[in-house]
């Protein structure tokens, strides 16, 4: 049981990193990203392949995954130069689908649908199974703390004011002499970097990744976390991510109470539940549980 809780907490950590990254892109700057699963998967596979096929140490591979993601993030957001915001949603979603297709089809590199086994882990061998779980949990939460620190600093810095300015009205920001395109690309790339690191951490944790792990469903869960917690509020979405995980895992136990539900229907019910809650939150409490803090003039 305690093992189970530790592994759930680790997953919550991955979700928190992704949600913080999305909050930077969407909550603060207003850039829609529906390709979270794509960036996450790209990070996971980059780190996995570098350690397995190229013999890199995990930390190097982790950072490489982040940097590669940053480049892709910059390219994807570059497409938004002349775009309406909602077209960026289509572009990012398409990006995620392409990543998934490449992972599925290029099996000479990614091992295709069978999945990629990864046996490289930080500090592997020196700890027994139980304490290793706790160690990894701590490692993930150190990263969560780091990402939280960086995003909070950005939010409170003058940089954060520009981000919110772009979100509210990019024309005003442009008129005030801010290079909006430059800011957009930077913010998107930094968010993608965090998503890549989350993916790498995930890959070395589960030790077997396959394209099925990176479906649009995952992006929806992260969106749900941010909307639930309150867009623009970093602390709120940490709670949002935990709540979403509680719903996902909680519905797992539904099967114990109601015997005639099989695993397939259960996952459908879970998705319906998450979707309905998402619509209800947007309808009745669009600012989320913890609304964005208002800034006073210092």
């Amino acid at each position: 049981m305690i093992d189970y809780l530790i592994s759930i907490a680790t997953y919550v950590g991955f979700y928190m990193i992704l949600a913080l990254a999305l909050n930077l892109q969407w909550g603060q700057t207003g850039m829609v990203n529906f390709g979270i699963a794509g960036f996450y998967g790209l990070g996971a596979y980059t780190s996995g392949l570098l350690t397995i096929d190229a013999g890199w140490p995990w930390l190097g591979a982790l950072l490489a995954a982040g940097v590669l993601n940053m480049l892709f993030g910059a390219c994807v957001s570059f497409l938004s130069i002349r775009l309406r915001d909602d077209f960026l949603a289509i572009v990012t979603l398409g990006f995620a689908e392409i990543v998934r297709l490449v992972l599925l089809n290029e099996d000479w590199l990614t091992r295709g649908p069978r999945g990629l086994p990864i046996d490289v882990q930080p500090l592997s061998g020196s700890l027994d199974r139980e304490s290793y779980g706790i160690f990894y949990l701590l490692l993930v939460f150190v990263v969560v703390g780091f990402v939280f620190f960086v995003t909070e600093r950005l939010r409170k810095a003058p940089y954060g004011r520009v981000m919110r300015g772009i979100r509210e009205d990019d024309l005003v920001a442009e008129t005030l002499g801010k290079n909006v395109l430059y800011y957009r690309i930077q913010v998107f790339a930094v968010g993608a970097f965090f998503m890549g690191i989350a993916g790498a951490l995930y890959a070395h944790y589960v030790q077997n990744i396959s394209p099925e792990h990176f479906t649009p469903m995952l992006s929806i869960f992260i969106w749900m976390s941010v909307i639930f917690g309150g867009a623009g509020n970093n602390k709120g979405l940490l709670i949002g991510a935990s709540l979403v995980m509680m719903i996902i895992e909680g519905t797992r136990f539904l099967g114990d109470f109601i015997k005639f539900i099989d695993a397939g229907s259960l996952s459908s019910i879970r998705i319906i539940l998450i979707g309905v809650m998402m619509i209800l939150v947007i309808r009745f409490r669009p600012q989320g549980i913890f609304p964005e803090e208002r800034f006073r003039q210092p």
């Binding site: 207003g30 829609v32 915001d85 909602d86 969106w223 019910i269 998705i271 619509i279």
Partner: peptide, 24 residues
């Protein structure tokens, strides 16, 4: 009266709900 982004997010939620009901 919501923004187009909000409606877009909602429409994705609707898509997943409808698809899951069919699957169910």
């Amino acid at each position: 009266s919501a923004t187009s982004i909000t409606l877009l997010v909602v429409s994705i939620a609707v898509a997943f709900i409808v698809e899951s009901i069919i699957r169910l």
